[in-house]
Every structure is written in C-alpha cells, then in structure tokens.
Design a protein around this nucleic acid. Structure first.
Lengths: 223, 223
DNA sequence: GAATCAAAAATTATCTATAATTTTAGAAGG
DNA sequence: CCTTCTAAAATTATAGATAATTTTTGATTC
C-alpha cells in the first residue's frame, strides 16, 4: 500500500491546520489551544506543539511565549507584500523552468487553465490556479525556491478565500493563456513579464462593482 | 532588566544550533541527536524537537521520520539557488526601502562597509556585510520579506564559512560603495541593479588563484 | 576476509505528569 | 454601573516515562 509522504503525527496535524487556516475555517486571531487540538487528533500536545512551529515558519500562525499560538492576522499591506514576493520568485523560477518545459507540460497547464475557467466555486478555481503555476514552475528544479513559492501561494489563497463573500462567476483567464502562448513560442522573457504583472495584481485592484462598506472591500481575484 | 527577545528554551536552542550550523561547527550531514542536545542544554528533548522544526523550516536541517535530524547538506547548485533568491528578494526590498532611507542610515551603512573592509577574519567580515544589507533593506518595512532574506543570508554565510579555508585578505568592497553612492543621489533603480549583480555573484566565480583539487574549489567571497 | 544475521544498545516519537503562568470569573469597593 | 482585586480554572512549557524503530555490534557462515 502507498505510504504517506510524512508519517509523523506532527506533520499530519500541521497539514490539516494549515489547510483550515488557508480555507478560513480558522479565522485570523483565533486561538489554537494545544490540548484541544491534541484531543481532536487523539494525540498528546507534544506533536501539536511541533506542528505549531511549522505553522509559525509558514507565516500562518504567530506564537507568543507563554501566551499561546493564534492564527496569524493579515491586512491588505501584507497581502501586497506576499504578492510582490511571489512575483519576484515566480519570475525567477519561470526563467529557470522555461528551458525544461515540454509540450506535454504546457498542455497540462492549458488544461488547468480551462478547468479554472470552468470552476464552479472559488476553491475549485484556486486548486486549478495553483496547479497551473506549479506545472510551469516545477521544472526549474530548485526545491528551496519552490517551497518558498508554495508558502506564499498558501498565503495568497488564504486572502482569496477570506475576501470572497459573494457568489462565483466564471471568467476567462487571459493572463494564463498569454503566458502559455509566449512559452510555446519560446519567448520566456515575455512570459516572465506577464507572470510578474499577473501575480502582482493580487490585492491591487479594488473591485469597483462592490459597494464600499458592504464587507470591508473586495479585490480582484487573480493569481 | 532587559528581557530576552524570545524566552522559550526551544527558541534559544534553535538559535544556538542555527549559529553552529552556519559557522560550520556542525558539519553537513552531522546527526543531531535530541537527547544529547537536550543534555547539553540541561533541558528535556521536547524543546529540542521544537527547535528542530524551526531549523528544518530554515533549511538548515533535514528530518526523516523515525530516522532523526541531520544538518542539511548543500552543493554549489543550492548555493546558486540561494544567491538568486536573495538577489530577487533584496532587490524588491531595496526598491521599497529606498524612499525611507535617511542620510543617517546611509552613513551607518558606509561605516559597516568600512568595517567589512577592515575585517581581520571572515566572521568579522560577514558580520559587517550582513549589517550593511540589513541597514539598507530594513526600512522597506516588510517583515515577511525581511525574514525570508535573513534565512537566505544565513544559508549564504554558511557557504561562505565552509568555503573559506585559507587566510583572510583585506579588500575594498566597491559594490557596497557604488550602491551607497547611487542611493545618496536618489538613483534607487541603479542601486537595485548593482545589488542584484552583487548578490548573484555568490557561488558564481571560481577563484582562479586557488589550485584545483587543493580543497575542492574556492569561490569569490561576496555577498 | 567479506557477507549475513541476531541480539543488544541507542534513538525517536509519543504519552502522561507537573510546575509556572495566564486568563477568567466573581466579589468587593468606589 | 464600572473598577479593581483575588481566587479558581485553564493553559503553556517543560520534564520524565515508555513503546516502537533504527542502528550498532559481534558472532557465524561461506
């Protein structure tokens, strides 16, 4: 039978908690109490504490000595910061990945784009979006870089899910398609340029169709 | 009396171990045994394990379930990866920091450069070098970005210390000075460009004065 | 002498217990 | 009704104990 990628209780707990935080099930500022979580997972608090250290490093939780751990809060300023870091690092990754991209990979990325366009809800869209980015960046073969991008992507997704209140409307991702066209034609620098702007857009453009004050503000969903 | 920045045993252990790994006192591949470290610090292994999670996240150690934790190994490929990530992120930080730089900060950075040039050994040089970079980047006021840069800087320093075998010779850091000149004259983009090349140099230029095979290879010391 | 195997020792991952600290709740006083 | 204080409850951080796994050691065989 297939073995799990990580088989310690601590890593499983950290993965589940990270997912909950990203999806917004655990809201910003929410207190993560080690005994409660331990009980939920049928474990002691020792692996829970180890999971906390991981979440802390990912920027999903903050820990104050003796005062416990809470879900990290984030404001629009931090969303922009994450977007700019992602833009810088994804461009770097794409420049290295470009020469290793095969037609098969680009086809898969196009399929991911189509699935994103057809997505019925924000979670499905985000899953497809993440897949697109992973597909075109993974061939850079730089594990540390990819790990950083993954963490930043999680932070972006968290913002996306939290900002999304109303219904989901389908749309066409022109940026993704333009990136693929450029890559297919071997114009890596152009693709990198589009990718940079594409990612930086996150948290930049207030959605003018929303009434101010309705629920704070809404922003363009991209990424 | 002044309080320590972090007062848990786990954070202290992780800081000390990180320092030892960076300085090369703990060599790549070295096994970190939780009970031994616990004993050394007069603690139990619980905080040691938490420290391990932090080192893992920083890329300084790798952990295999049930098989323990070892000091991360690194090759020239990873050194380049770290250098490119640093270049990308430091450029981003400098672009944001530029508008907040004051003459006082630039003076302090110049002083750090002088101290680096006068450094008697590689550790003193690295300390001054790090200070220079921190001084000009911190005003970007982007904590997540700065934390990432710090981790990458540690990885660079680790390489620097490991590659350095022979004696230390003083030299003048022209890049740092050129960056300061550009910043003083308000040419932030030019400064960012120099910084980018400066950081990317790490792990790039084989030092031609060393005989091949003497101790693997030596590389230009920059950063 | 090298390879193989089994028992012993060491080590990890986890649980349970405990001291110290923080938070909560409620009483007393303004 | 709002502070302020205090005692109780909850929570964190760490220690000590234990089962499971891995590593080491050393004998045995080819």
């Amino acid at each position: 039978m297939a073995k799990e990628p990580e088989d310690t209780i601590a890593s499983r707990i950290s993965r589940v908690l990270a997912d909950r935080i990203v999806r917004g099930e655990l809201p910003a500022g929410f207190r993560l109490r080690q005994d409660h979580i331990a009980e939920e997972f049928g474990a002691s608090h020792v692996p829970v504490r180890e999971a906390f250290r991981r979440l802390e490093a990912q920027g999903l939780a903050i820990s104050e000595p003796r005062r416990g751990v809470r879900v990290a809060s984030f404001d629009i300023k931090e969303v922009r910061e994450v977007a700019e870091m992602r833009a810088a690092l994804e461009v770097l990754a794409l420049r290295h990945a470009a020469k290793h991209l095969t037609p098969a990979i680009l086809d898969a990325a196009e399929e991911a784009t189509r699935e994103g366009d057809a997505a019925a809800d924000v979670h499905a869209w985000e899953e497809a979006n993440r897949r697109f980015h992973r597909l075109i960046l993974t061939p850079c073969n730089m594990s540390r870089l990819l790990a950083s991008i993954d963490d930043l992507h999680a932070a972006s997704a968290r913002f996306l899910f939290s900002a999304w209140r109303s219904g989901w409307e389908k749309r066409t991702d022109h940026d993704h398609r333009a990136i693929l066209v450029a890559l297919r034609q071997g114009r890596a620098e152009e693709a990198a340029g589009i990718l940079e702007r594409h990612v930086q857009w996150i948290g930049r453009a207030p959605k003018s169709t929303n009434k101010a004050g309705e629920n704070g503000e809404a922003f363009a969903i991209v990424g």
